Simulated assay, not measured.
Amino acid sequence: MANRGDFAALERMIASCRELARLPELAAPIAARNVEAELRASASAGRAPDGSAWAPRKSDGGKALANAAGAISAKAIGTVLLILLRGHHVFHHFGAGSVSKRRIIPQGSIPPKLGNAIRLGFVPPFRDIVKGRKS
């Protein structure tokens, strides 16, 4: 026979399941921070988001786009992640005129490292919800 404690536990479980519907909006800001960090790390290493190395500078063969990481930002708008690239780095990303093309932000499919950064954004709010902590 069920008692009040059992019904209270069931009600808490139902409330947690309902709260899971908010998971994408709770995870998006965390995922945006993770994505920004991953993109800045790849740019600092002189690599495209897919891990391929950028071509060296034509002038002296040195590291290209040394300040590209500072031109990258990411933010959450609802459940959408918006990645921004500012300044002259946009011309390098797309390759304009004599400027070599060096991918700085992803285009097309999401590279595995960025996919992992997004997925990791879901972990903290999921844990909070299933443990009954308020988000």
Rank of each mutant, 00 (worst) to 15 (best):
A9I: 03
A21W: 05
P24S: 01
A48F: 01
G97I: 08
A15C: 03
F126A: 15
A2R: 13
A31P: 06
A64Y: 01
G87A: 07
A64F: 00
A96C: 03
Q107F: 10
G51S: 11
S109R: 15
G61D: 12
A41C: 03
F94E: 15
F7A: 12
I14A: 10
S16F: 00
I118R: 02
R102S: 08
K58Q: 14
G51C: 10
V123Q: 12
F122H: 09
N3H: 10
A48K: 08
R18L: 13
G115A: 03
I72S: 05
A96D: 09
G62R: 06
N3E: 09
V90C: 06
I105G: 09
D6I: 02
A8H: 06
E38Y: 02
L26T: 07
L85T: 03
N34T: 02
S42W: 03
A71Q: 06
S42T: 15
G95Y: 00
A9D: 10
R119E: 14
A68E: 09
D128G: 04
F126L: 15
G97A: 11
A21M: 07
I30E: 13
G5Q: 14
G87V: 09
P106K: 02
A21K: 14
P112V: 12
S59C: 04
S42C: 06
K58Y: 04
I72T: 01
I30M: 08
R133A: 12
R40K: 13
G78M: 10
R57F: 00
G132P: 07
G5H: 09
A55V: 10
A8E: 15
A21N: 11
G5M: 07
A117Y: 02
S109W: 03
A45M: 06
R4Y: 08
R57K: 02
C17V: 14
L82W: 08
D6R: 08
I104S: 05
I105N: 09
I72W: 05
L120M: 12
F94Y: 12
I30D: 07
R4I: 07
F7D: 12
P125Q: 05
G121W: 05
G61R: 04
G115H: 05
Q107R: 13
A66L: 07
R4Q: 12
A41I: 04
K75P: 00
K113G: 05
P56A: 00
G115K: 06
A96G: 00
A55K: 11
E11W: 00
S100L: 13
D60E: 10
A76L: 03
G70Q: 14
A45K: 05
A68L: 08
R57D: 01
G62Y: 03
A2V: 07
I14P: 00
V80Y: 02
P29H: 01
G115Y: 03
D60F: 04
V35L: 09
W54S: 00
A27D: 08
A66E: 15
S16G: 08
A55E: 14
N34K: 04
S109I: 04
L39S: 05
A2T: 13
H88N: 12
D60L: 04
G95H: 02
A27T: 09
H92T: 03
I83T: 13
L23F: 09
K101S: 11
R4H: 07
A9V: 02
